[in-house]
Write a protein that binds this DNA or RNA. Structure first.
Lengths: 220, 220
DNA sequence: ATACATTTTAATCATTTGTTTAAAAACGTT
DNA sequence: AACGTTTTTAAACAAATGATTAAAATGTAT
């Protein structure tokens, strides 16, 4: 019947709208609900400012369940922090050590992949870096800094510009890709840029950064 | 007498050594001692992780004196935060709006002055940016973003490269100057770079950044 | 020296916060 | 349906924390 079809269409529209607005998915297990909520709250407020009650409320669960499933606030944080560290650092070393790609290709691959990652996780850099700052020793050994410091990428850079420490160039690529996301809260809270225009600018940068790095390498 | 002269020299040496090692200056007023200590502790641990007892201990004063002189932890923090905001943003707009300098000169002046500032205050960027992140609305109106967004510097940039949004270039100058200080805790806690070599690299960057920016502006 | 104001101290308070407990509810198996 | 197991709940606890208080100490002016 005609009416039934209309009803079905309305239902589909409602489902679609719900999936767009990311309304709390009620079919997750309690453990996953807590982890998801903890992720959001920790990322937004940092470890110290986060109350276990905030997480419980965000997850829509009883406070005691947090300790039931994860022992303690600290254990839960450690779990999430390790995942976020992997997300933030994990993809860097593989790209920089890929033996199949040239220097130029590495720059393109890195800035493209990394900016895509950060568009999906804009608060990641500031979260990671402040938590490391406020607890330097705790995660020191978890960072793949050695694999980056001895990377093929830095050797390839050194061949191209023996007069300048290649760490400078690596720093610049990182800076130009990551720093805008660290400044985002400033622009946003000052009402200068909304999320949409910010993302658009970041998309532009994916193509621009490799060109800029090339220009820097050729300079003088 | 000869002995007296030697004694005077020894005293001078002691005073000199003390000023070098910055041993807690005991001649400060209680109010200043608290503010100084609060500065250090807030910058190191952030607002949320800082206990008023930490500040009292660092200042070597009785806990109650903090409330006696500054009413509350929050009032004291606000005071320090405003000073740090001024330090972090205060010098930017004047340089970017100076009608007497060319575009190239502005880049040189900015990177030089700003890196000098950050060498003296390495934790400043991460402190400011995390506190804004974790409390976006609170300091939004205090930021001189408008003076930067409408700056002469951006107009001069626009003339030189009408094809690219000048905000990209401003972002790059900021990024290349500031970002290393944001990554410093990572390098440091991973044992890759000590304070001395880090500072040396930053000194190099003061001269390099203007060259890089120039190359980027000429590119393609 | 005395009286008054300012500063400092030790003790205490009220609230917040991470965690635990014991009972209730829900679940699964036979 | 009855049983044991797992999950959830409300209540409570102990420690931490920001703040206050009242008395002691110190400083200052007469």
């Amino acid at each position: 019947m005609f009416n039934e079809e209309i009803i079905i269409i309305f239902e589909l529209v409602i489902i679609f709208e719900m999936s767009k607005k990311k309304i709390a998915e009620p079919d997750l297990s309690t453990e996953e609900k807590i982890k998801d909520a903890a992720q959001r709250v920790f990322m937004q407020k940092g470890y110290a400012a986060t109350r276990t009650r905030d997480i419980a409320e965000e997850a829509g669960i009883n406070l005691a369940l947090l300790n039931y499933y994860f022992r303690s606030k600290e254990k839960l944080f450690e779990l999430i922090m390790l995942e976020k560290l992997e997300k933030f650092f994990g993809s860097v070393a593989p790209v920089l050590n890929n033996a199949e790609t040239t220097l130029d290709q590495k720059v393109i691959l890195f800035s493209n992949n990394y900016i895509d990652l950060l568009i999906e996780n804009p608060e990641l850099p500031l979260f990671i870096l402040s938590e490391i700052r406020y607890n330097p020793d705790r995660f020191a050994h978890k960072l793949p800094v050695a694999k980056i410091a001895d990377s093929l990428f830095l050797k390839q850079l050194h061949e191209k510009r023996q007069d300048i420490n290649p760490v400078h160039f690596l720093m610049n690529i990182l800076a130009m890709s990551v720093f805008p996301f660290i400044m985002k809260p400033v622009f946003h809270s000052a009402g200068i840029m909304n999320d949409k225009t910010f993302t658009a600018r970041m998309m532009e940068r994916k193509a621009l950064i490799p060109k800029w790095i090339n220009a820097m390498l050729k300079a003088k």
